[in-house]
Design a protein around this nucleic acid. Structure first.
Lengths: 190, 190
DNA sequence: GGGGGATCATCTGCATCGGACGCTCCACAG
DNA sequence: CTGTGGAGCGTCCGATGCAGATGATCCCCC
């Protein structure tokens, strides 16, 4: 084995936009672009709130990151500042043509990046933790989020776009799978 | 809503060992501790290779990190250097009592940390990418890793510890779920 | 006795993390 | 009015994590 494939390939850097000061575009970059695209026009704060409201279960960023990304994207010319309303320097931003192109390029790119399931519970199992201790907590928590998702699907399911509905469906299946899995773990004879 | 819960709670820092220069123990720390515990005695390189061989699908670290973690853990007194065999400074390390206690504490702690499913594919769906483009690739790739896991389970299933077998089962269920999900996405009428 | 590939380790530069801190605005009480 | 407190909004910093390049040492085989 060549020097072990230990890394995560988190990056898979893209450079769809071809202009200006050459930034590396990472997934968080596209998260910001995607949200601003949805909102049309937004301040960093709007982005942050919207991210927390929507995509956080799939990909969250700490607050400070949002501002940093916006700076980077502005500098790279993928976003443009629309206006500064007075005192509080509230920057409203839009996608530039380059920004829109970059987003489209990313969305269209089917490149597969293998995921790791960063489940601490599973890791603990691997290292020999007691299923007795962990299973009940896991089942309870996954059931809770599963309920939340299902309620969401029932309540606002109609209002979602197709893609959003599908992402939600993924969440539901994931949580259902986890509940089943931990029940299976619990039920094994010791 | 108070200032949005946007963050990931990646940390959930622990401090089970109570000695010395106060390090923050993160999941990677316990990964290293867990592996050294399994191996009994190991150099950073051994840890890195073992990690790549085993837990990488659940939690991988880039090479450099392993060395950094070892340094931190040594300094904190959770690991001890056993010997330096000559020229190439090959440090062999063991868990100290504190290290073993820290690991036990972590393993016993059922605290639930919500996962994010950092699936780029799902994120792209959310933002409106075309299922037509992505589904076939995703199905293919997930099926491939699923096959790999199942083969593994067949081949060496007997040799694994209970926890390892369970972790593998998780992998299988996860991949199976993904294949089903993307097939469902693909099959929806447009 | 020296080339070359596997083994082992480190450095560097950047992205990201989390949490604390600091503004601005507005509501409402005094 | 004036003051004060909390929600809305933004920034900073130290620690950690990341990817890849690069540097050494070993050992096999010629």
């Amino acid at each position: 084995m060549a020097d072990g494939r230990l890394t995560r390939d988190f990056g898979r850097i893209a450079r769809y936009g071809r202009r200006m000061s050459e930034v590396r575009l990472t997934t968080p970059s596209f998260l910001v672009l995607g949200i601003i695209d949805k909102l049309g026009e937004a301040s960093p704060y709007d982005v942050k709130v919207e991210a927390a409201r929507t995509v956080a279960p799939f990909w969250s960023m700490p607050h400070a990151q949002v501002y940093a990304q916006c700076d980077r994207l502005l500098e790279a010319g993928l976003l443009s500042e629309v206006r500064q309303s007075g005192g509080r320097n509230r920057r409203l931003m839009r996608l530039t043509d380059e920004g829109a192109a970059a987003l489209r390029g990313w969305l269209a790119d089917p490149a597969f990046v293998p995921v790791e399931a960063r489940e601490r519970g599973i890791l603990k199992l691997w290292f020999g933790a007691s299923p007795r201790v962990h299973a009940p907590v896991q089942i309870e928590e996954h059931r809770r989020t599963l309920d939340g998702y299902e309620e969401l699907a029932g309540d606002v399911g109609e209002l979602l776009t197709r893609g959003q509905r599908e992402a939600l469906e993924f969440g539901i299946r994931y949580e259902r799978m986890m509940v089943d899995f931990w029940q299976w773990v619990e039920s094994r004879e010791p």
